[in-house]
Design a protein around this nucleic acid. Structure first.
Lengths: 147, 147
DNA sequence: ACGCTCGTACGATAGGCATCGTAGTACGGA
DNA sequence: TCCGTACTACGATGCCTATCGTACGAGCGT
């Protein structure tokens, strides 16, 4: 079906169906420096972090909430610390999205997996972005419509 | 299917499947003030704009590009001004997402539909957000990996 | 009036993704 | 050693959405 029918003119158009891989949602997760435990998790290197992926990661209410709590704490929090209204499977999924987009860093610490914001990386790449998003989220949460 | 099987405990969980309407992706588009032409388009009122929707709208490369050009121009641009590598149908779709999320304002001007950033609304609701996103996009576009 | 251009609406297609459940692995304590 | 806790992997489900094509509506120019 790819090259079948009647393209408007000679213009090179995207293949029909799907979004044709335009999104930068695959940071080619390549870990840079080994940390401590035997179980290591793939993180995008700082230069691999894509703005679109970060915005996408933050556009989910669940994940935005997690990021807000991480920012409020400042340090590292275990996955189980968060009381999200979803199952643990889904929680794992959200944390992975945050990690693979470069928003958080995850490290195994015994049985627990500790999560920390990649503040310096994000601030270095996108100055002011994280702060304005956090401020916006706080402001919106304080609005009447949002409780 | 709702109350069929084996919920972990008494905890009220989301219905299986789907994301259970958690996302704020339906700003209940209620136009506030009629403008000029007979053909009017539904825009979310300023207070209806949700941070998650804005971030989601900006997380698409196509739409981010449109927003960057609108910001660079400062004024209003017609839809046809943009030379996106997709068909007109898809272009219309993206502009609608931007409008319904509150990022742009669309007004019919003859046969053309003019698009303008809702700068004051966005800056009022989320101070610094748009600027940091634009700066981040510009910085990323200047990075070696991005050409 | 006629057509041209701009943009919409609608339906189809296909991959994305948020969610769940179940089963399994890793680590630490009893 | 055995069990409990923390988290993962995998498959299923069902909506979301980016994309296309075609057919249509609304203005402007001739």
């Amino acid at each position: 079906m790819e090259s079948s029918g009647a393209q408007p003119e000679g213009v090179l158009r995207r293949r029909p169906g799907h979004k044709a891989g335009v999104e930068g949602l695959e940071p080619a997760v390549t870990t840079a420096a080994p940390t401590s435990s035997s179980r290591d998790l793939p993180h995008p290197a700082r230069e691999e972090i894509r703005l679109e992926s970060v915005l996408h990661a933050l556009s989910d209410p669940m994940r935005l909430q997690v990021v807000r709590e991480l920012a409020a704490d400042g340090g590292e929090l275990s996955c189980s610390h968060f009381d999200l209204p979803v199952t643990k499977s889904t929680t794992t999924h959200h944390f992975r999205v945050l990690r693979e987009s470069g928003v958080i860093r995850q490290v195994y610490r015994g049985t627990a997996k500790m999560n920390g914001l990649r503040r310096s990386d994000l601030d270095g790449l996108f100055p002011g972005l994280l702060d304005s998003v956090l401020a916006a989220a706080a402001g919106q949460a304080a609005r009447p419509v949002d409780g």
